[in-house]
Amino acid sequence: MHRRTLMRALAAAPLLPTAARAQADWPTRPVSILVPFVAGGPSDIVARAIAARMPVSQPVVAENRPGANGEVAARAVARAPADGYLLFVGSIGVFAINAALRPNLGYDPLRDLTPITLAVTTPNLLVVNPDRVPVQSLAELTEWLRRNPGRTSYSTSGVGSSDHLTMELFKQRTGTDPEHVPYQGGAAAATDLIAGNVQLSFQNLGTVAGHIQGGRLRAVAVTSERRNALLPDVPTAVEQGLADFVVTSWQAVMAPGGMAPALQARVHAAVAEALRHPETVQRLGAIGLEVVANSPEDYRRFQEAEIARWREVVRAANIRAE
């Protein structure tokens, strides 16, 4: 009797801790990081930096799956098992602005995805064409815009982009109203600004830093809390009297919704270690991306606040997704 009882216990034992063992042994096969945009952009760069430095025994591979402003990849992740073998690196648009801008979005970035970490942030820069806009400061620009109603325009990387909503927030805060001219990406928006076809723009630091240093664009303000080391002479918007005007473009890491807390903690630890590696920090910093690598809880609070903030900007500006 004792022997039969022992055999039954031994047979049943592997069934009880299977899920826990799978989490503790993660990963036992390759891990994929889905990127919702084409190769070469910030999300792709961050994903590949993480993949190269994750301290795991299995390969980690970044895969690009662009489409519908990130919705194609986000839907795929939302439907995937939360087993740690599919991660998702996306932008402020995918994880916050889409939810504010598109009421019929095919995924819920809070309900359908598990937070891992806020990976990096980068400020926007308010830049002008120096030959078309004779200003040096934020106050001078605001006054110039007010003196030229209906005769000014700004470029963006697209409707609903971070630079678009940043300008809309600026317009709401300053009572100015330059016309929106959307482009297919930040590079095209900067090119037409340099050509003088538009007068001003908010663009990511990495997109315009070289143009500023080369004199092709003039930076009026940076939207971070403090001045940026790449352009230390450019004052913040807050310094120039625009209170609380702190806006960052950001990339985050998420996973399919419903991930077990123990596995979430293991994944977070591996991703955060990759991001905090000195070579990763240096490589991303060189293109204007500041590593954050905060906790899942801190990132979720930040994400919720960003969705609420941009939902109000979208409502006030009556922006409609194209």
Rank of each mutant, 00 (worst) to 15 (best):
H2I: 00
R3H: 09
R3K: 12
L6K: 00
L10G: 05
L15N: 06
T18Y: 07
T18E: 07
A20T: 11
R21E: 01
A24H: 15
A24R: 12
W26C: 00
W26M: 00
R29D: 12
V31Q: 02
S32K: 06
I33W: 10
P36L: 01
F37C: 01
V38Y: 14
V38L: 03
A39T: 12
G40N: 14
V46W: 08
V46P: 05
V46Q: 12
A47C: 02
A49D: 11
A51Y: 14
A52N: 01
M54A: 10
P55S: 09
A62V: 00
G67D: 10
A68V: 05
G70P: 08
V72R: 02
A73H: 04
V77E: 00
V77H: 08
V77W: 11
V77I: 13
P81D: 14
D83M: 04
G84D: 14
L86S: 05
F88L: 02
G90H: 07
I92S: 10
G93A: 01
F95L: 09
I97D: 09
P103F: 13
N104G: 14
P115S: 10
I116Q: 08
L118G: 09
V120W: 09
T121D: 07
T122D: 07
N124A: 00
L126H: 05
P130L: 09
P130E: 11
D131N: 12
D131W: 08
V133Q: 11
V135W: 11
Q136K: 15
L138I: 08
L138C: 07
L138A: 04
L141V: 10
T142M: 00
E143S: 13
E143R: 12
G150F: 06
G150V: 01
S153F: 10
Y154Q: 02
G160N: 11
S162T: 15
L165M: 14
L165V: 09
M167W: 11
M167H: 13
E168H: 05
Q172Y: 03
R173E: 12
G175L: 08
V181C: 02
V181R: 14
P182Y: 03
Q184H: 10
G186Q: 02
A190C: 04
A190I: 06
A195S: 03
L200I: 12
Q203H: 11
L205V: 09
G206Y: 14
A209C: 05
A209D: 15
G210L: 08
G210V: 08
H211F: 15
H211L: 14
A221W: 11
S224H: 13
R227Y: 08
A229C: 00
A229R: 07
Q240I: 06
G241V: 04
A243T: 13
V246S: 02
T248W: 04
S249G: 10
A252C: 07
A252Y: 12
V253G: 04
M254Y: 06
P256L: 05
M259G: 04
A262D: 13
Q264E: 13
V267M: 06
A269Q: 14
A269V: 01
A270K: 07
A274Y: 12
L275V: 01
R276T: 04
R276C: 03
V281F: 03
Q282N: 07
R283L: 10
I287W: 07
N294R: 01
E297P: 01
R300D: 13
E304I: 14
A305M: 03
R309W: 02
R311N: 10
V313K: 14
N318M: 03
R320Q: 15
A321F: 07
E322Y: 09
